[in-house]
Amino acid sequence: MITFDLMFFVLAIPAVIFAGISKAGFGSGAAFAATPILALILPPAAAVGLMLPLLMLVDLATLGPYWRRWDTRAALLLIAGAVPGVALGALLFRAADPDLFRLLIGAVALGFVLYQLALRAGLFRIRGRPFPQWGGVVAGTTAGFTSFISHAGGPPVAVFLLAQGLGKTTFQATTVLVFWIINLLKFVPYAALGFFSNDTLRADLMLAPFALIGAWLGVRAHRLMPERAFFAVTYVLLTVTGAKLIWDGLI
Rank of each mutant, 00 (worst) to 15 (best):
I149S: 05
W216R: 07
R102N: 07
P189D: 12
A203Q: 05
L100N: 05
L100D: 04
L184I: 13
A229R: 13
G122F: 04
V233M: 11
I126G: 10
L185T: 00
A221T: 01
I213H: 02
R220L: 11
L177S: 09
L166Y: 08
R202H: 13
A163Y: 11
R202F: 10
G140K: 01
G154D: 06
V157Q: 13
A143N: 04
R228Y: 01
A118Q: 07
L162V: 15
A232E: 11
V159M: 00
L110E: 00
G218Q: 05
P209S: 07
P155E: 03
I149G: 08
A208N: 12
W134D: 02
F171H: 04
P130K: 01
Y115K: 13
L161R: 03
A192Y: 09
G153V: 04
G111Q: 06
I213P: 06
F196G: 10
D99T: 15
T174H: 00
L212I: 09
W134T: 03
F112W: 14
F210Y: 11
F148S: 05
A221L: 05
V137I: 14
F101I: 04
W134L: 02
L110D: 08
R223M: 05
G165V: 01
A192F: 08
A173Y: 10
L104M: 15
R220N: 12
M206L: 14
F131Y: 15
M225H: 05
F230P: 12
P156F: 05
L104H: 03
G218V: 02
A208L: 04
W180G: 14
D97K: 09
L217G: 08
A192S: 10
D204I: 00
L184P: 03
P156M: 14
F160W: 02
A215P: 14
K168Y: 00
F179N: 06
T142P: 04
F196Q: 10
R120K: 06
A143Y: 03
G144A: 06
V108C: 00
Q133V: 01
L185K: 05
V233F: 14
R129Q: 15
R102Y: 01
P189C: 08
A229Q: 07
N183E: 10
F210I: 03
A121S: 14
G214Y: 04
F101T: 10
A163E: 07
F195T: 12
V113E: 13
F145S: 00
G165W: 09
L177C: 10
S197T: 15
L207G: 08
K168Q: 01
A203C: 03
R228P: 07
T141K: 00
S197V: 11
R102T: 02
S150Q: 06
V108G: 01
R223D: 11
F196E: 03
D97T: 13
L177Q: 10
R127Q: 08
G128D: 14
T142N: 03
L103I: 15
G165F: 09
N198L: 12
G194I: 08
F131K: 00
G135C: 13
L123C: 08
E227P: 05
A109T: 13
I182S: 04
V137Q: 02
D97V: 06
A158V: 15
V157H: 09
F230D: 10
T200M: 07
M206I: 14
P130C: 09
R102K: 15
F187G: 11
P130I: 12
V138Q: 03
G136S: 12
G218K: 09
F124L: 11
G214Q: 07
A158Q: 06
I126P: 13
F131W: 14
G154T: 14
A191E: 02
